[in-house]
């Protein structure tokens, strides 16, 4: 059976599927992708089930190769730098990785999470029904840990792509992270109306210390009207809790299942990935929407994922000259526009 081999992986590169569902009542976090839309889109482009297991790539980057046969790959990593055996490729690409070739994915100017799906099935034993990795509790993936050099991921029912790498055309993955839509609550009544307005307006600066558990923002601290301790209740992905220091924390895929701070609002499902892709230092604000608007956005997203992801030939002039020079592979070559 062919296998995808991890040649090197930065911190935070993990296996993720659609998440571990059904065990929140026992304190088991769902985990799953930080950017659910891009995860599903990678699987869509690879003709897999939308919740199939993929490699989630952090800004730590990853280098992979194929062993015991070719491996068909779909990579969606907008903003990342991608190269196959030193030749730059688009950041959304389908290709067949032949044994001996190396695919390198490194952080670029934008984007926090990329998704590498194999065409076929990564053969990883599920734990509590899921291969999603939750490193804090050591569950799922490979022994509950992040991927590391030497890991070998067998590919069952693999399919390959004929010919040269192809660019995947999915402009809808290029989402603006400056305004994040939220539904107020469940504890918005812990804040006076002027503090709700201040929360929405921001602007908030995304802290670089975010991870799969939470996104932290800095700005003018919010004031609580009724204290900052509540008796613990459930926590959804995207819940925005406001602890005693008044600075919102947005709870993401690896969040705990329950929590004891008031939650002023909840990021809507379709904007979770948009938020996850925002890197430290960026500024954002929040926009209040109704449950009905959020559901409409969710429906639109589902409809997008019903369509095949178009492919087109890779054209070299797609690369910016600084990228080519940065790779130091083809000194003197320009993109033809400069």
């Amino acid at each position: 059976m062919p296998a995808l081999v991890i040649e090197s992986a930065g911190p935070g590169v993990t296996l993720q599927d659609g998440g571990r569902h059904g065990y929140l009542r026992y304190g088991i976090t769902a985990a799953g992708p930080m950017d659910p839309l891009m995860h599903a889109a990678a699987n869509r482009a690879a003709s897999n089930a939308l919740d199939a297991t993929v490699v989630e790539i952090s800004t730590g980057g990853v280098t992979v190769s194929a062993e015991d046969g070719p491996v068909g790959i779909v990579l969606l990593a907008p903003g990342f730098r991608v190269a196959l055996d030193g030749v730059p490729l688009p950041d959304t690409v389908a290709l067949t990785l032949e044994p001996g070739q190396r695919l390198v994915v490194r952080a670029g100017d934008a984007g926090a999470w990329g998704y590498l799906a194999v065409a076929g099935r990564l053969d990883v034993a599920p734990v509590l029904g899921s291969a999603a990795t939750h490193t804090r509790s050591g569950l799922g993936g490979l022994d509950g840990r992040g991927l590391a050099a030497g890991d070998r991921l067998p590919v069952a029912e693999g399919r390959t792509l004929d010919g040269a790498p192809q660019r995947l055309v999915a402009p809808w993955l290029d989402r603006d992270g400056r305004v994040i839509r939220v539904v107020l609550g469940p504890q918005d009544d812990y804040f006076a109306p002027d503090q709700i307005e201040a929360f929405l307006a921001g602007p908030w600066t995304v802290s670089p210390r975010g991870d799969r558990m939470a996104c932290f923002v800095d700005g003018t601290p919010l004031k609580h009207a009724k204290g900052h301790d509540i008796v613990s209740d459930g926590v959804a992905m995207g819940a925005i809790q406001v602890p005693g220091n008044g600075l919102p924390i947005i709870l993401m895929a690896d969040r705990q299942s329950t929590g004891g701070y008031p939650k002023i609002a909840t990021v809507i499902g379709p904007d979770l990935g948009r938020l996850a892709q925002v890197r430290g230092g960026a500024r954002l604000s929040f926009r209040r929407v109704s449950v009905e608007e959020a559901v409409a956005a969710r429906r639109a997203e589902r409809d997008l994922l019903r369509e095949a992801v178009p492919r087109e030939p890779v054209i070299r002039t797609d690369f910016a000259s600084d990228f080519l020079l940065g790779l130091n592979l083809v000194g003197g070559v320009t993109d033809g526009r400069s």
Binding site: H21, L24, R25, V231, D233, G234, T258, V291, V295, R298
Partner: peptide
């Protein structure tokens, strides 16, 4: 209805709003 999470004082219901409306 996808998950039920009982806590001290509330029950959180996770649902798929494209299947079950609020």
């Amino acid at each position: 209805l996808r998950e039920r999470v009982p806590t001290y004082r509330s029950l959180m219901l996770h649902y798929d709003p494209l299947v079950l409306d609020r």
